[in-house]
């Protein structure tokens, strides 16, 4: 911690930094309850239609780019690990390690987005973008499009969430850590970002089988 940094004071509504940190964590958990229902509603919609049109969905899902999704799954799972290592380093006052692991986390998130972008390019080539560039494949019928609407909405929303996550990690790196606001005594902001990051990771864990594994058994 730079010597010039002023000692942290809790905000006026809190009695102690500890209480402030606990409150922030509870806030993030409550927010994730909300996020779970947000994505839950989408996945629910998906399953309703998949039950109605099992064959069409299986046919449509064969066009999803399996290797992109799988590599991305590995990348995101790894990034959750690096995130936890960063928090761990922060708690033990290993400043350099913390910064290193955070950079790794943000970088893995960036690689995920790059691969996702490339996958979108492949999808466009493959004519599976509803309305914009779409051609029904044999066996898909009219319900195949429902699968692709779900694909674009779900992966798009997930990418937005991941971008926000990368932004939060960069904010931690460039502001809170640089100003010495993350210390072993108070690293709750980093933990809150970590909780969020793991949630975004977990969402992919649910989207992955819905998109890439349907009809491939």
């Amino acid at each position: 911690m730079p010597a010039s940094a002023p000692p942290l004071r809790p905000e006026i509504q809190f009695a102690s930094l500890e209480q402030q940190g606990e409150t922030a964590q509870l806030g993030m958990w409550a927010f994730l309850v909300n996020e779970t229902l947000f994505f839950g509603a989408l996945i629910f919609t998906y399953y309703i239609y998949r039950l109605s049109y099992p064959h069409e969905f299986a046919a449509a899902a064969k066009d999803a780019v399996l290797w992109c999704g799988s590599v991305n799954l590995v990348i995101l799972l790894t990034s959750s690990l690096t995130m936890v290592l960063a928090i761990n380093a922060g708690a033990q006052d290993q400043r350099q390690a913390m910064i290193g692991w955070l950079i790794a986390t943000a970088a893995l998130g960036g690689v995920f987005l790059l691969i996702k972008g490339y996958e979108y390019y492949l999808d466009f080539q493959d004519k599976v973008v509803p309305v914009v560039n779409f051609a029904a494949k044999p066996g898909e019928g009219s319900a195949g499009q429902l699968f692709w609407v779900f694909y674009w909405v779900a992966t798009g929303l997930h990418a937005i969430h991941l971008t926000v996550g990368i932004g939060l990690v960069l904010y931690m790196l460039l502001r809170r850590i640089r100003h010495g606001e993350i210390t072993p005594a108070y690293y709750a902001p980093l933990e809150v970002v970590g909780i969020y990051w793991s949630f975004v990771d977990a969402v992919w864990l649910f989207l992955y089988p819905c998109i890439y594994l349907v009809g491939r058994s």
């Binding site: 409550a30 309850v33 909300n34 996020e35 229902l37 947000f38 994505f39 839950g40 509603a41 989408l42 919609t45 239609y49 109605s52 049109y53 069409e56 509803p130 309305v131 019928g141 009219s142 319900a143 499009q145 429902l146 609407v149 779900f150 909405v153």
Partner: peptide
């Protein structure tokens, strides 16, 4: 906290359907 996100997703899908013309609630698309 628990009901609003469902509406958010619902209106989001509605807006997608209204804006792009293809969506999840249209009987003509299944």
């Amino acid at each position: 906290l628990t009901a609003t996100p469902v509406l958010a997703m619902d209106t989001f899908l509605l807006a997608v359907e209204r804006f792009l013309g293809v969506g999840l609630f249209d009987p003509n698309h299944g």
